[in-house]
């Protein structure tokens, strides 16, 4: 058992035993290798089922929306920023939460690892920074660093920004030469190339909405895609409707997205939906100097007005 798992179990069971929280939200072992599942513990015994590894990529903030209980929650850097978002958007209050922060060194891109094999993965074991992956046909040892998710490669806030406990000493933050290389590559295309890039990107989308459901920001009681009166967007597989869904979903995350990558993790078709939201992350940063979820003391740029806000686009 790794030290993170041990510490998480210890902190979570103590919280429950001492009655400081009603429940703790964390990750439990999944049913297949290279998977974890969000899990809830209400007793110290149940907290013994928590685990931590490089597959804990979902964002548990998603389960906090409008909850009334006192909740303990496990949070990586990106998740802690989503919790800050939730607090400033009044979806939960700070005193309801006990945040167990996890200094994070990144989660892995499961599809990239699966791509190394023809057959199904039967065993997945972390050994320090290396990972041993086995299938019936072969066995490989890979370096975690080479298989990080796109958002973890460019992450600048691996340590939780808000927490009540930490499961380990803070990790060293990454020094990045240019965190927005991927966005700039798309910006450099001409209009038709951009259009085709997104057309190809979305060609496999089956509109299952897993990306939306996994995102802690998408908590509207009725999402615009589900509305039927008025019907903002068609329900079928017409490429225009698919594009409209993705464009608007992304825009609803403007100035709020913490680039946690849960949307991409949840996608069964391996669609890089962050190609939309990353542009907004970059613009928020460049136009407003804003990174979502870093502080409880400031309102996000899109729900405030300042006389010095840029307005060159208004003619």
């Amino acid at each position: 058992m790794n030290t993170y798992t041990e510490k998480i179990r210890e902190l979570a069971s103590n919280l429950l035993r001492e009655g400081k929280v009603d429940l703790v939200i964390g990750f439990k072992e999944g049913t297949v290798p290279m998977a974890t599942a969000p899990g809830i513990a209400r007793t110290p015994e149940e907290a013994e089922g928590f685990v931590w590894d490089v597959n804990c990529s979902l964002n548990l903030t998603n389960y906090l929306t409008n909850k009334k209980e006192k909740i303990g929650i496990i949070a990586k850097g990106c998740d802690s920023r989503s919790i800050v978002n939730h607090i400033i958007e009044n979806k939960i209050s700070r005193d309801q939460l006990h945040i167990i922060g996890v200094p994070c060194t990144g989660m892995v891109d499961k599809n990239k690892i699966r791509g190394l094999f023809e057959d199904e993965i039967t065993e997945f074991k972390e050994e320090g920074d290396a990972i041993l992956v086995k299938t019936a046909a072969k066995e490989l040892t890979i370096e975690k660093q080479d298989y990080l998710r796109g958002n973890c490669q460019t992450c600048m806030h691996r340590n939780p920004v808000i927490h009540d406990d930490l499961v380990a000493e803070p990790v060293v933050e990454q020094e990045l030469e240019d965190p927005f290389k991927d966005v700039k590559a798309i910006e450099a295309m001409d209009a038709d190339e951009k259009w085709n890039h997104f057309e190809n990107l979305l060609s496999g989308c089956i509109r299952c909405y897993a990306c939306r459901n996994a995102c802690p920001l998408c908590y509207c009681p009725t999402c615009f895609v589900d509305e039927s009166n008025p019907q903002w967007v068609g329900k079928g597989q017409d490429p225009t409707d698919i594009r409209t869904f993705h464009f608007l979903r992304a825009y609803h995350c403007a100035g709020r997205c913490t680039d946690c990558g849960a949307c991409e993790d949840a996608c069964p078709m391996d669609i890089k939906v962050r190609d939309f939201t990353r542009k907004l992350v970059k613009d928020s940063f460049e136009i407003y100097g804003w990174e979502a979820g870093l502080t409880l003391d400031q309102r996000p740029p899109l729900d405030t007005f300042k006389p010095e806000d840029p307005d060159e686009f208004i003619k």
Partner: peptide, 20 residues
């Protein structure tokens, strides 16, 4: 919003904002 539309391939000159 204009920026994101442009990012996904809608020509910048198709969308205008004005206060009159």
């Amino acid at each position: 919003m204009g920026n994101l539309l442009e990012h996904m391939g809608i020509e910048k000159d198709r969308l205008h904002f004005s206060w009159i």
